[in-house]
Design a protein around this nucleic acid. Structure first.
Lengths: 151, 151
DNA sequence: GTCAATATGTCAACAATATTGACCTAAATG
DNA sequence: CATTTAGGTCAATATTGTTGACATATTGAC
């Protein structure tokens, strides 16, 4: 008789596999954010600043509302770090010509340099992992993460 | 001539793939923590409480020092949430018989119920993702995450 | 047995962050 | 012109984290 968890109905073996998967997510995410966190700390910045820099870099001209949506934070929680980035001249905040209410966020040259350094750290880390894992494992990883992300 | 990033040397195409991977990690982790976070919030608990419950559940009798090590937080940052869990009778904190300085942390029956509910949410989520992705993708995912986690 | 080291618990001061709710301007839209 | 939308800001409050100090009990080295 296989023991099964009362809540989930998984066998003990499968439950252990899933525990391992949970831990992989926890430790991987921590390893993934550690590098940029160290760089940011020296400038008095944190992970929220990184996320702003990242998404603005990917989509120059992004509106404040769109940024709020991807980051899933409140306007007030976004505003202080955003204002700091603008104050440090890493991000510029221009009025849109199409709709004067909307602001278009862009990185300055200095912002691009910092973002590129932060993101570069993570890209090199991931590339090294993918190289070791092999492209088949990479594809399986991507497929799995796609499903988890859209959950 | 392929454009290459100044910092990393990646081609634009590969850089875009790596950007996608970064976003997968960000959005996946968020999706993965959302379920438990909602359950915890109702009890005035947060992710740190969940991590304590999780690791104590996996390793009953865990010492405070060992818990500090896995979680990688300061003693002071751990203590308030831990004391709350003990106060709520979800965790018990007994003196070790082998070494009277060491405390052995264990979940109470109520602690096990809560932990099982939180962890069950994530197990079901992962199992559903793995089922959709297929076992080959799951294996690739695990291999990749192992490498990233030990980074 | 004395003394240093270890494991834990706690406090206080402080800084950083998040949350809620309110209020304001400017611009677009019907 | 009235309403809605995008954005910006403030204040009050709560939560969280950080640093440093200090206390106790217990072990282990000598």
């Amino acid at each position: 008789m296989i023991d099964r968890n009362k809540n989930t109905g998984f066998s003990d073996d499968r439950a252990a596999d899933l525990h391992e998967a949970m831990e992989l997510l926890f430790f991987s995410y921590r390893a993934f954010t550690a590098g940029p966190d160290r760089i940011l700390e020296k400038r008095g910045l944190n992970r929220v600043h990184h996320r702003i820099l990242y998404f603005v870099a990917r989509q120059p001209g992004l509106s404040v509302n769109d940024l709020l949506s991807v980051l899933d934070v409140s306007k007030q929680a976004l505003h202080i770090p955003l204002r700091q980035l603008v104050g440090m001249k890493l991000v510029q905040n221009d009025k849109s010509k199409l709709d004067g209410r909307v602001r278009e966020l862009r990185l300055t040259a200095a912002g691009r340099r910092l973002e590129s350094r932060l993101t570069g750290t993570q890209q090199l880390q991931l590339e090294s992992v993918f190289a070791d894992a092999g492209s088949e494992a990479e594809q399986g990883w991507r497929k799995t993460m796609q499903l988890l992300a859209q959950d």
